[in-house]
Deep mutational scan, measured.
Amino acid sequence: EEPGTYGVALYRFQALEPNELDFEVGDKIRILATLEDGWLEGSLKGRTGIFPYRFVKLCPDTR
């Protein structure tokens, strides 16, 4: 996996908008950016989108 910051999904998130990223509990999401209003941008399984930061637990930065 690529170096960078990752978050592990604490809850299932179902995308409601085309720019959102849906995921299941336990998915490991690569964090790409921190956005305003409590949203993160991340990538998972070749898809990129935004999601609420409270749905993931950030992992320590590992290489």
Rank of each mutant, 00 (worst) to 15 (best):
E1M: 13
E1N: 08
E1G: 11
E2R: 08
E2Y: 14
G4A: 12
G4D: 13
T5V: 08
T5P: 09
Y6N: 02
Y6A: 02
Y6D: 02
Y6C: 06
V8M: 14
A9L: 04
A9H: 00
A9K: 01
L10P: 03
Y11A: 15
R12V: 06
R12H: 07
F13Y: 15
F13V: 03
Q14W: 05
Q14G: 03
Q14E: 11
Q14A: 08
A15D: 05
A15S: 15
A15V: 04
L16C: 14
L16Y: 11
L16S: 15
L16M: 15
E17C: 09
E17A: 14
P18T: 08
N19L: 06
N19I: 04
N19D: 09
E20A: 11
L21F: 02
L21S: 05
D22L: 01
F23V: 08
F23D: 01
E24G: 05
V25Q: 05
G26Y: 01
G26P: 00
G26T: 01
G26D: 05
D27K: 00
D27L: 04
K28D: 01
K28I: 09
I29A: 03
I29G: 02
I29V: 06
I29P: 08
I29N: 01
R30E: 08
R30V: 02
R30H: 10
I31W: 00
I31C: 06
I31E: 05
L32V: 11
T34F: 12
L35K: 15
L35W: 04
L35Y: 10
E36H: 08
D37H: 09
G38S: 05
W39H: 02
W39P: 02
L40C: 15
E41C: 12
E41W: 14
E41M: 14
G42Q: 02
G42E: 00
S43I: 06
L44Q: 02
G46P: 04
T48K: 15
G49L: 00
G49V: 02
G49D: 05
I50Y: 06
I50M: 09
F51G: 01
F51V: 10
F51Q: 00
P52T: 02
P52N: 02
Y53D: 15
Y53I: 14
R54P: 06
R54T: 10
R54Q: 13
R54H: 14
R54N: 15
F55Q: 02
V56C: 01
V56Y: 06
V56H: 03
K57Q: 12
L58R: 11
L58E: 03
P60E: 12
D61M: 11
D61R: 09
T62H: 14
T62D: 14
T62P: 14
R63E: 07
R63C: 12
